[in-house]
Write a protein that binds this DNA or RNA. Structure first.
Lengths: 348, 348
DNA sequence: AGCAGCTACTAAAGCGGTTTTGTAGAGCTT
DNA sequence: AAGCTCTACAAAACCGCTTTAGTAGCTGCT
C-alpha cells in the first residue's frame, strides 16, 4: 500500500491540465465555478485512481495551519491525564485535527521547553492538563485544572467549592466530626484551590481542622505510595479520626492500605472519600466513595473550546474560565462512624 | 512570547548575508567550512537575538522527513496502552521525535483509516499497540503484541509460553489442580497466542481444561465488567475450581468481585492470577498476583526499534520478532487451596 | 602576465502545494 | 467589424527552507 505518493504535477501531466486547475477544483474554490462538470469529474476520477493526497507539509507551509494541537500532561500513564486525553481525542480527530502528546513529569525544565517545541512544530493551539501555566503564547491555550489568570488562556476547572461541599456534607450527614485530610502535592495545579475550598466549607460546617489531621502528599510517584505514607503520618500523630478525605483516588487507595495495616477497618473504623473517580475506583474492594470529576467530558470541552478559539483567531483572546460540576459517587468506603461517641484508635 | 516568527530571509537581510549562507552555517554543513568563525559568530548571535527557528514545514517539505511517528492504541485511557505509550514517549522525545496518538477502540473502520491518515501526515513510521495488523506500508511499522508476520513489520511480543508456564507452575506448585480460565476478547491481538500457550503448558503439566472452566471476555468495555460477567458464567457452570487465571488484571478485578459476591473468599476459596501488572494491581486488596509484562520497557524497545529502522531505510525491512520475558509477581490473591481435597463450591 | 587555487559567499533550483493574476478564444452586441 | 463579456483554463508568485552549482576577488606560482 501507498508506495511513492503521486504529486499534483504528475497528476496534472496525466490529465493534460495545469496543477493550478486541479488544485482549484479539489479545494472547491469559487474560482473553479467556471470549470465544466465534465472536467471536474475527470479530475476527481484521476484523484481516486492514482490515490492522490496533497502533501501535508506543502499545504501547511502555505496555509500556516497545521491542524495539529499539542497536549501536555504530567504523565500519559496516569489515569486522570489519560481520561482527559481520551475526551480531547474524541473531538479533535472528529474535526480533522491530530495531536502531539508530551509528559513533563513535573519537571520544570520540560514544562518550560515543551511549549517552545510545540510552537516550533507550528501547533495551532495547545492544551495543558494539570500543569501550572503562566505563559501567554501566540496561539490559543486551554488548560484543564489550571487556575492562573493568563491572557489568551482559557481554564477548564472543576467547581471545587461544590466538590468540597458534597464530600464534607456527606460525611457530616452520616455523623462524622473528626475528619482527616490529605492535601495534594505542591506541584499539582489543583492542590491550592481544592484545599482552600475544603477549608472554607469545613468552616461553614463547623468542622475543626487541627494540623494533626492534615497530611500532604510528597514526591511525584504516580502510585498510591504517597497516600500510604501520608496516612501513616496521620495515624502516627495519634489524633483520632473517623473519616479521611484524600486528595485523589490513587492516594485514597494508599490510605486504605495504611488503615488496614493498622488494623482499622474501612469503612467501619475509618470512612474514606477519594477524588476523581478513576476507572479502578469502582472496582476497589469495597468500591471507593469519591467525588467524580467528569474527566473525559472536561477533555472534550477543552478541545471544543480550543478549536473554537483557533477558528476565530484574535477575537475572545482574553482569559476565561469554564466551570464543570462534580458529582459525589457513594460506594462502599463510607458509612456512619462505628459508635456514637469516641472513635476507635490504636494506642500510641 | 513568540509573536510573529522571524524568517530566514529577514534574518539574512539584517545580517547583510544571503539565506543560503545562514542555512549552511546553522546546519553545520561542511560547505560552510570556509566561512570564517567571525561570520559564524555573528550569525549565531543573530539567531539567538531574534529567536530564529526554522519553519518546520518548510524544512520537512524539502527533507521528506517529519520526525514524527504515529502511535495507534485501542484506547489511550486503558492502563496497558498508556504504559506502553509512556515508554514510547521516553525514547521518541529524547531523540527529537514527536508522536501522534489515535485510539481506534477496536473499530475496524478506524483501524483501516488511521494508518492512511498517518501516511497523509507523512509520519516517518508507526507503532501499533495491541492492534491486529496486516498492512505492509511504505514506512517502517512496529507492533507491540502483534502476532502477524507481515513484510516490513517488526513485532514486539511477550514470551507467552514462559508467561503461561510461570503462572500455571505457581498455581500447581501450591496445590491447585482445578483451574478456571478467562480468555481474552476476540479482538485483542494477544488472545490467540496467549491461549494456545496456556493450553500447551496446561497439557504439559497434566492439567485438564474442561469447557465448563473456560469463559471468554465479551464486549469492548475497558472496565472490569467483562471479567465479572465471565466469572459469573464460570460460577454458574457449577464445575468446582480453586483457582482462576484471568486474561488480564482488569478482568481479574471483575472476577474477584464476582467471587466475593458469591461468598467465595479470595484467595482462600479461589486463588486469582491476573496478567499485565498494571499500576493498580499492586494496590488491590489484597494485592493481585499477576504475570507482569514490562509494558513501558516494551514501549521503549518498540520506539528504539522503529527509530533504528527509520534511520537505515531499506535495510532490514523484513518481518522480525523481538521477544520479551514476563515475570510472575506473587501478591495476595493466590494461596494453597483451602483443604486437601474437594474445593468449596456453592450449591447450584 | 597569465593562470590555478583558495576563500567567502551568492544565485537559483527545488520541495509540493495554494492563490492571484492573466489570457486565448468563443459568443454576443451594436 | 470592432469591442465587450464570458468561459476555461494556465502562468507565475509565494510559502520558508535546503542544497547544488557557481562566482568574484585575492594569493601565489611560473
Amino acid at each position: 500500500m501507498g508506495r511513492k505518493p503521486v504529486t499534483l504535477k504528475e497528476l496534472a501531466d496525466h490529465l493534460g491540465l495545469s496543477p493550478a486547475t486541479i488544485s482549484l477544483v479539489i479545494n472547491r474554490s469559487s474560482v473553479a465555478d467556471s470549470i465544466p462538470q465534465e472536467t471536474k469529474d475527470r479530475i476527481f476520477a484521476a484523484v481516486k485512481k492514482y490515490n492522490y493526497r496533497p502533501n501535508f507539509f506543502a499545504r501547511s507551509l502555505g496555509a500556516r495551519r497545521s491542524f495539529t494541537v499539542g497536549v501536555m500532561v504530567p504523565e500519559v500513564s496516569d489515569g486522570y491525564s489519560a481520561s482527559v486525553m481520551s475526551g480531547v481525542e474524541d473531538l479533535l480527530l472528529q474535526e480533522g485535527y491530530f495531536y502531539f502528546v508530551v509528559s513533563h513529569r513535573h519537571r520544570a525544565d520540560l514544562i518550560d521547553e515543551y511549549p517552545r517545541l510545540f510552537l516550533e512544530r507550528s501547533v495551532d493551539g495547545l492544551i495543558a492538563v494539570d500543569t501550572p501555566w503562566t505563559l501567554s503564547l501566540s496561539v490559543p491555550v486551554v488548560t484543564v485544572s489550571g487556575h492562573n489568570q493568563v491572557t489568551g488562556v482559557t481554564n477548564i476547572v472543576l467547581d471545587h467549592e461544590r466538590a468540597a461541599e458534597v464530600a464534607l456534607r456527606h460525611l457530616t450527614q452520616i455523623g462524622h466530626r473528626h475528619i482527616a485530610f490529605i492535601k495534594g502535592q505542591e506541584f499539582s495545579s489543583d492542590t491550592e484551590v481544592r484545599w482552600s475550598n475544603i477549608r472554607k466549607v469545613a468552616r461553614e460546617l463547623g468542622l475543626s481542622m487541627p494540623p494533626a489531621l492534615v497530611a500532604q502528599l510528597e514526591g511525584d510517584s504516580p502510585t498510591p505510595e504517597p497516600g500510604y505514607v501520608a496516612t501513616l503520618k496521620l495515624l502516627a500523630a495519634g489524633k483520632p479520626f473517623t473519616a479521611l478525605f484524600a486528595f485523589n483516588d490513587i492516594s485514597a487507595m494508599g490510605a486504605i492500605r495504611a488503615c488496614r495495616e493498622a488494623k482499622l477497618r474501612v469503612p467501619q473504623d475509618v470512612s474514606v472519600v477519594g477524588f476523581d473517580d478513576i476507572q479502578s475506583a469502582a472496582y476497589q474492594n469495597p468500591g471507593l466513595t469519591t467525588v467524580r470529576q467528569p474527566m473525559r467530558e472536561m477533555g472534550r470541552i477543552a478541545a471544543k473550546t480550543l478549536l473554537h478559539r483557533i477558528r476565530k483567531t484574535g477575537a475572545d483572546s482574553n482569559s476565561q474560565q469554564i466551570t464543570i460540576e462534580p458529582e459525589l459517587v457513594i460506594r462502599g468506603t463510607t458509612c456512619a462512624p462505628s459508635d456514637g461517641s469516641a472513635s476507635p484508635r490504636r494506642p500510641r
